[in-house]
């Protein structure tokens, strides 16, 4: 499989809910429709809630990679303005 072209990255491992989602939304606002964001997050609460929240905002989840340090990279395509 061809690697996805990542337009921007955001690390939300340094904040807690609800700032995790706020930081994600700020990063997404900077992108144009169709661009791709990689979100680095911790397991547990962010992993349970961020993908769900992004889906409810209409964005498209493309992929979830588990890193060796226990964090995850969630790859999301921006849908809408």
């Amino acid at each position: 499989m061809v690697d996805l072209h990542i337009d921007d990255e955001v690390d939300i491992t340094d904040v807690v809910c609800p700032a995790t989602f706020a930081k994600t939304m700020i990063a997404l606002e900077e992108l144009d429709e169709g661009q791709i964001l990689s979100i680095k997050m911790n397991g547990g609460e962010p992993l349970r809630n961020i993908p769900r929240s992004l889906k409810s905002e209409g964005h498209q989840i493309l992929k979830l990679n588990e890193n060796k340090d226990g964090t995850y990279d969630l790859i999301v395509k921006k849908v809408g303005d």
Binding site: V15, P18, A19, A22, M25, S53
Partner: peptide, 12 residues
Amino acid sequence: NEQIERYSRHII
């Protein structure tokens, strides 16, 4: 990050 946290309930 501090501002994101302070205003997170707005930003979301």
